[in-house]
Simulated scan of single mutants.
Amino acid sequence: MNITNPYAQAGWAGSNGSAPLPSIYGALPFSSPSSGPSIYQFQFVSFSPDILNCTVLGPQSKPYFRLVDNAPSHNFTLLQDRDGKSLAVVEWRQSPGAVVEIRDIIRKQLVSSWLPLSADRKYRYMNALNRTFVWVPQNGNVGLYTYGTTTPELYARFVRAEGGVTLEITSTAIQIGLLESCVMAVALLQSGRFID
């Protein structure tokens, strides 16, 4: 009998440390204080008609961001916080291409410069906070990893499913200021619009 764990006394499976606890976030591994950073889930929902006009729900399914595509011209898409304050903007131009700016994170630049496609067209780089990351598709989702390190670290991943898109992001990524960049990147990569 394990006297330090009251759940073990009740005989609950996995409570004695012999079996891993199930993931509460789907494909990502279960997170505990000893296994690494926490994982937070953000859901892009209520597309009207697409991801460029939607609500982003954060933890406890509370509205966290809004993506707003100005109609009828659709020349701009804004990322707003829950209070309606603009955090980022995409200007949809024909030539030389769409331009993005994320306040205090990314200066105004072409989306194709911020999220450039690799030479082999298999992944995309993302430049934010004076660092380079890489979005890599694999096994039905797209993961954001550190770039230029011997052991790439997974910071976030997103998957499209019925009813919307889900972004899972680590507490480490949020702490260093990547949340808005990840939300904007997911919106652009899932927009169906030409971004190169």
Rank of each mutant, 00 (worst) to 15 (best):
R103W: 03
C182S: 12
A173R: 00
V99S: 01
S35Q: 09
R157E: 11
C182H: 04
V99A: 02
R82M: 06
R157V: 02
P33M: 09
N16L: 13
N70Y: 05
G14I: 11
V68C: 03
C182V: 07
L154S: 02
N70W: 01
F42G: 02
S171M: 00
L21T: 04
G148D: 13
N16C: 13
S48K: 12
V111F: 10
L57Y: 00
L78V: 06
L57E: 01
L78E: 14
S31W: 04
G177A: 08
I176L: 10
G11Q: 08
F194E: 15
V56E: 03
V68L: 09
L167P: 02
S118F: 04
M1N: 06
P37Q: 11
M1I: 11
A27P: 04
L67G: 01
A119L: 05
V159L: 05
D50L: 03
D69C: 14
S73G: 04
V68K: 09
S38Q: 10
G164P: 08
A8V: 03
D69I: 03
L110H: 11
E162P: 00
V111G: 07
P72A: 03
V89P: 00
S171R: 07
I195V: 15
I102H: 02
V134F: 02
Y64S: 13
S23L: 12
Y125G: 08
Q80D: 07
S113G: 06
E91W: 02
Q190E: 15
G17S: 01
F76V: 11
K62Q: 09
G164F: 09
S61E: 10
F133L: 15
Y147G: 01
S61H: 07
Y40P: 01
Q109C: 15
S191I: 14
D81A: 06
R121E: 15
P49M: 11
N141P: 00
F65S: 01
T166L: 10
Y123K: 13
G148M: 12
N127R: 14
R121P: 01
L188A: 07
F47M: 02
S95M: 09
W114Q: 14
C54V: 12
E101Q: 14
I105M: 03
P72C: 03
R66S: 08
P22G: 05
F44M: 13
V45H: 05
P152Y: 02
T4C: 03
A98R: 03
A10Y: 08
I195F: 13
Q94C: 07
R131S: 14
D196Y: 06
L144Y: 00
C182N: 05
E91F: 00
S46Y: 12
Y147I: 00
